[in-house]
């Protein structure tokens, strides 16, 4: 699944970034790279962007970007 589909309070691990070039570098500079644990923290009242907890920082990404971040939900964090 991709980061934009991640539910609130679910933990996930980044598996791949599906963007190239400077945009990819930017995300990595913010600490978002394969293996990083992420969590949805809150969503803008207008529905987009969403802020994610990444390495103790709160990083807001627009949906179009979050869609390029592939994640894997960590076991036991899925809320049913």
């Amino acid at each position: 699944m991709t980061l934009d589909e991640l539910g609130p309070d679910n933990r996930a691990t980044v598996v791949a970034l599906e963007i190239r070039g400077t945009q990819r570098r930017r995300l990595m500079d913010l600490g978002l790279l394969p293996g990083t644990e992420v969590r949805v923290d809150m969503t803008s009242p207008l529905g987009d962007p969403t802020a994610y907890l990444v390495r103790d920082g709160l990083i807001a990404l627009r949906r179009s970007q979050a869609r390029a971040v592939h994640v894997e939900v960590r076991d036991g964090s899925e809320r049913q």
């Binding site: 500079d29 600490g31 990444v54 390495r55 103790d56 920082g57």
Partner: peptide, 9 residues
């Protein structure tokens, strides 16, 4: 110091 890991980069 509250976010050491991300700063160490």
């Amino acid at each position: 110091s509250t976010r050491l890991e991300r700063n160490l980069n």
